[in-house]
Computed example of a mutant assay.
Amino acid sequence: MCNTSLHAFLAALPKAEHHMHLEGSLEPELLFALAAKNGITLPVSTDPAFASAESLRKRYEVFANLDDFLGYYYIGMSVLLDGSDFEALAYAYFAKAASQNVRHAEVFFDPQAHTDRGVELSTIVESFKRAQARAAADFGMSTELIMCLLRHLPLPSAMATFAQAKGAGYFADGTLAAVGMDSSEVPFPPPMWKDLFDAAKELGIRRTCHAGEEGPPLYVSQALDLLDVQRIDHGVRALTDGDDALVTRLASSKTLLTMCPLSNFKLNCIDSMSSFPLRRLLDAGVRFSINSDDPAYFGGYILENYCALQEAFGLGIRDWEMIAKGAIMGSWCAEERRAQLLVEVEDVVNEWARQFEEQ
């Protein structure tokens, strides 16, 4: 947690989160509790990190790369079996996010990782819906679900899952706000998924895609051109590899980048927090949000990400106002909700600006 004079302000600032995998919020303590409840044997015989929640959390501190992390991520998912498990997972995240003043959250989930284990899609989605309803009632938080398909599985699997969600009416009734694409990036470039994204576009479904985390800036361009996405998840390579034309394009189109600083650092996508392209984002006028990605694995939720950037860059209140408002403007919520959240940001910013002026 940061020790700067702006820490209390950052804690109070209303936040919108757009890049958070619900399965990535599975804390080791809940993982072990659900494993015991469901009779799941964790692979302690082959990996001593699974000896305890404490040793597993310590292992999470030293991921070598994206695939190293994903190995633990998918093992963790194996403990999620029934509706109460999925509801507990989602509600735990919403409660933590609310404690850090997240007012609107658009969260990912990976249905194939569960349906391939025999869990029904309806079990997953309906359980998350119950957690969303509780979060709205308990915290006044608005939330959206984004269904992500897994790149490392064959296209027919993604198409079948998409068709199942469509057939259940989850897109038509607004239960699912968008379709996304995640998991291992480099071996599976965006063109492989054109049929899926074309099908979503034909139905008027919003589209987003993980691109440019470990893959090159070309992946970001391909996601925009071939998949016609409306949002880019990560894109850090486009900002750090000097692709000026792409940065200009992102700024002029107001395409939201959902950036994840602690994740990028933990997965060795950037050398240090000071290498995160924050200043370039601000100077170029790119619309972006700061997010926690997989907070149980990367050592921090959204406030910890804000604090890490504040310690590295020493931003001012007006910088954070720009970031917070840009995130809200890029949100997939109703216009009325966006307007309400913008007022909340302005109220907090003005209050803290007066306090600093009086000091």
Rank of each mutant, 00 (worst) to 15 (best):
E358P: 07
E61A: 12
L256C: 04
V62A: 14
F171T: 02
A353G: 09
D233E: 14
V62M: 13
S142P: 09
V119L: 14
L341Y: 04
P48F: 03
R59L: 01
V119Q: 13
A113K: 07
A245W: 08
Q100Y: 01
V179P: 05
A113R: 07
L121Y: 00
P28S: 04
L341I: 07
T161D: 08
A251W: 05
L267T: 09
L121M: 07
A90S: 09
M77A: 12
S78T: 10
A165V: 04
A177L: 15
F32V: 01
G212R: 02
D271A: 14
W332D: 13
Y301N: 11
A131E: 01
A35K: 03
N350H: 11
A339R: 14
K166V: 10
V79Y: 03
V247M: 07
F298K: 03
F86V: 09
L256Q: 08
L257F: 05
V119T: 11
H234V: 02
W320V: 07
F139W: 00
E87Y: 06
A353C: 10
S78E: 14
E61R: 13
E213K: 03
S252W: 11
D244Q: 10
A95V: 14
I40A: 05
D347Y: 11
T240Q: 10
V229H: 03
N291M: 04
L42Q: 06
L30M: 12
W332A: 15
V62T: 15
R117Q: 06
E214R: 10
C307S: 09
G174Q: 00
D182F: 07
D198L: 09
F265N: 11
R207S: 00
A11M: 13
D294Y: 01
D195F: 09
L315F: 02
L203H: 08
A177Q: 14
F356K: 14
T255Y: 02
R134L: 11
W352D: 08
D195T: 15
L121H: 01
R279G: 14
Y301E: 07
T175P: 10
S183F: 12
G169N: 06
M259K: 08
R151L: 05
A339T: 14
N291D: 08
F276K: 01
S289Y: 08
L224M: 12
D293C: 00
V343W: 09
